[in-house]
């Protein structure tokens, strides 16, 4: 991870927070393609590793992108997932489910490269489906954002979901 010393100034931090709020709104309004096309970098690595419960003394190396994960997506993979949702044939989304993203704990740092920001944030995703099917998923994200004009694109995202057994039937949504 790049240098984390230098905290971004107020204005830049504000812009990043607004960027995340917009992203959350796109998710909640199912504007997935808009999210992809306006907020995601062509070279993205979108990664959600598999957690494992290990003893503290376990000497095996930490998980790396080489290990793959529940998400191990490039731009084309994300595009594929979104296209599937757009077919109109995903029966479990008909009637549509409801989803809400709450984003918090945003920390924005400069890196050695002027164009890149290292950003931490937390999320709480609430899903509500059918009559009374609901789940709450909480985790954190580590992003590498590229500055583009007044806005940003997500170049890398590592999602850490705070559970071993995923207490939901799937994770087919974006965090």
């Amino acid at each position: 991870m790049a240098d984390q010393e230098e905290l971004a100034g107020l204005e830049l931090a504000y812009q990043v927070e607004q960027f995340y709020n917009r992203e959350a709104r796109f998710m909640n309004q199912r504007q997935h393609r808009q999210w992809l096309e306006t907020m995601v970098h062509q070279d993205i690595h979108y990664w959600l590793p598999i957690n494992e419960n290990r003893f503290a003394k376990d000497r095996r190396p930490e998980v790396t992108p080489e290990d793959g994960g529940i998400y191990d997506d490039n731009y084309g993979d994300l595009e594929f997932r979104i296209s599937r949702l757009e077919t109109g044939q995903v029966w479990m989304e008909d009637p549509p489910s409801r989803i809400r993203h709450l984003i918090s704990n945003v920390e924005v740092y400069h890196t050695d490269d002027d164009k890149l920001l290292n950003v931490y944030s937390n999320f709480h995703v609430y899903r509500n489906r059918r009559q009374r099917d609901e789940t709450n998923l909480i985790g954190g994200r580590v992003d590498l954002l590229v500055r583009e004009g007044d806005s940003f694109k997500i170049l890398k995202r590592r999602i850490n979901l705070d559970m071993r057994v995923v207490l939901d039937k799937n994770l087919y949504f974006f965090m």
Binding site: G69, Y71, R81, M92, V166, K169, N170, Y172
Partner: peptide, 16 residues
């Protein structure tokens, strides 16, 4: 994993 993993494109069809 992309098809039948936790966020799989086919896995998520079956669960419900």
């Amino acid at each position: 994993i992309q098809t039948f993993g936790t966020a799989g494109t086919l896995e998520s069809d079956d669960g419900e």
